[in-house]
Amino acid sequence: MAYPLPRRSALTLAAAMLARPSLAQTGDWPNRPIRWVNPGPAGGAGDVISRLVADRLSARLGQPVVVDNRPGAGTNIGMTIVARAPADGYTVGLATIAANAANKWLYREMAFDPEKDFAAVGLIALVPNIVVIPPSVPARNLQEFIAWAKAQNRPINFGSVGAGSSQHLAGSQFQVITGLQMQHLPYTNSGQMNTDLMEARIDMLFQSISAVTQMAQSGRMRPIAVSGTARVGAFPDLPTMQEQGVDITSTGWFGLCTPAGVPEPILARLDKELGEIVDDPAFRERIAATGSIPRKMGRAEFQAFMNEESLRWRDVIRAVGATAG
């Protein structure tokens, strides 16, 4: 004869049964492919770094890590996908200076909260920008360019891959420090932006190094400075902006995050694997070859870093009155 369970026991059993799948999924994670959302375009610096890390993460986890490029709205489209994904460890996203620091100050409405809707995993690399100008501009260094710009009877325009990008923010900071009148021209296609610079339809770019190395080295555009605190391997003779009297050392950056609420054991595993990848000498050499600087940060440090970046760019954005959609 079967006896009904007391109400409390029945509820306890039901709760335990509901908890089992979650525990099992955490314990055998990963048992299927992981989606890596890159909120930038294919072929960009974020795409290159995403694929370099995803390949190595796949080998370590024993499951495919598939890069899914979802550009648009200054990285907001891709990161909205990450924020709304199930918190099960099967969707991760490339954290960037745009979505995770600057966009909340640029956009009137956001579909996610960068501080509440993601869990930080770790930093991967810093990405200095190279300052390039058309060969037709009669300047050979940053101070000569500033003098030339001040002599023009119009605002100086600069391009970027979109509002909130490291290029846009560097240009805005340059405007604040130099006092130049400047106009931001956002592009959806970095190839067209580079072409417009070479043909002098725009005056300057703060561009990712990997995107313009060949064009700059061949003389189709002229490099005059790099951002960041040190010179870069691809252009060892090119002084930093700080060396040339313009105190800009900020860089773009890329890291890894997940939707908020991913179980602690999964976050800890991702943190461990990512840290070991960034520490690997072969990986560091490969990243450096793209013009980026490998930089390891664990979860807590990376979250604090993103919070600091958000406040830094809030002040710059307010100073120039920049807005986006």
Rank of each mutant, 00 (worst) to 15 (best):
E115Q: 10
Q25T: 01
S310T: 03
D68Y: 13
P21S: 14
L169Y: 02
I266N: 10
Q152Y: 06
G179T: 05
P134R: 04
L142I: 04
A289I: 14
R286H: 03
N141Q: 08
A2Y: 13
G93D: 00
D280L: 14
V316R: 04
G78I: 03
A170R: 01
V65Q: 15
A324H: 02
P21K: 03
T229N: 11
A163F: 13
G43P: 09
Y107V: 01
G219Y: 04
A282T: 13
I124V: 15
P33S: 13
R7P: 09
V316Y: 05
Y187I: 11
K272H: 15
T91W: 00
I130K: 01
A111D: 11
A300Q: 07
S22T: 15
N100I: 01
A101V: 06
T80Q: 09
D280W: 11
F118D: 14
Q173H: 14
R56L: 07
N153G: 13
G191I: 13
Y187A: 11
Q217H: 07
V232L: 01
G93P: 00
A45K: 06
L61A: 11
A45H: 10
M182F: 02
G219T: 06
V121A: 07
D271R: 04
L126P: 00
G44C: 04
D55K: 10
L197F: 03
Q244V: 03
P259V: 00
A54H: 04
G62K: 12
T75G: 02
F112C: 11
S208C: 02
M110H: 05
A260E: 07
A322F: 05
T80L: 10
V48C: 07
T290S: 12
I130G: 05
K272A: 15
